[in-house]
Simulated scan of single mutants.
Amino acid sequence: MEEVNITFAVEFFFLGFADLPNLQGFLFLIFLIIYLSILIGNGLIIIITKLEPSLQTPMYFFLGNFSFLEICYTSVTLPKMLIDLWTQKRKISFLGCATQLFFILILGVTECFLLSVMAYDRFVAICKPLYYTLIMNHKMCVWLVIGSWIIGIPILIGLTYQIFSLPFCGSNKLEHVFCDIPPLLKVACGDISMEEYSIYVDAGIFGMFPFLFISGSYAKIIATILKLPSSKGRYKAFFTCSSHLIVVTLYFGSAGISYLMPNSSHSTVTEILFSLFYTILTPMFNPLIYSLRNKDFIVAMRKLLPKCVGLRNK
Rank of each mutant, 00 (worst) to 15 (best):
I246T: 08
L226M: 10
K50P: 00
E175S: 09
K307D: 07
I71P: 02
Y259P: 01
K186E: 15
L23S: 12
S243M: 08
G41W: 09
F113K: 08
T249K: 02
D84I: 03
H176G: 09
G233I: 12
G204Q: 02
E2S: 14
M194K: 08
Y60M: 08
N172G: 14
F238Y: 15
W149V: 09
K307R: 12
P21S: 08
Y290S: 07
T282K: 02
I151E: 03
L134Q: 13
L20R: 11
C97S: 15
K307T: 01
Q88S: 13
F103S: 04
A98N: 06
F61R: 14
P283I: 04
L95R: 03
F209R: 02
L273C: 06
F164H: 09
K236V: 05
V117G: 00
S264M: 04
D121W: 03
K232Q: 13
I92M: 10
P283H: 04
S258V: 00
I289N: 04
M284N: 03
I199V: 15
M81V: 14
S242A: 10
L115P: 14
F297S: 09
G25R: 06
I38H: 00
E195S: 13
L304V: 07
T160I: 12
A219C: 12
G170K: 10
T249Y: 06
E175F: 04
K50V: 02
L228M: 15
I214P: 05
I46E: 05
C112Y: 10
A300V: 04
Y120N: 03
N42L: 08
K307I: 07
P129Y: 03
V117Y: 02
T268F: 11
N65E: 03
C141Y: 06
F62M: 15
Y197K: 11
F28R: 03
N172F: 01
F164W: 12
Q162K: 15
R90S: 10
I106M: 06
Y161W: 11
T110C: 15
N65Y: 09
Y132A: 05
N294L: 05
V145M: 04
L55A: 07
F62G: 11
G147Y: 14
P182Q: 03
P283L: 06
C308Q: 11
T7H: 12
Y251T: 10
L288H: 06
T77Q: 11
F277P: 00
V299G: 00
K220R: 14
A300K: 01
F62W: 13
P79W: 04
F168Y: 15
Q56L: 12
E11H: 08
S116Q: 12
G41Q: 07
N313W: 06
G147I: 13
G43F: 00
V145C: 03
L273N: 09
F277G: 00
L115F: 10
N22R: 12
P154D: 02
M59P: 00
F113V: 11
G207H: 13
I205Y: 13
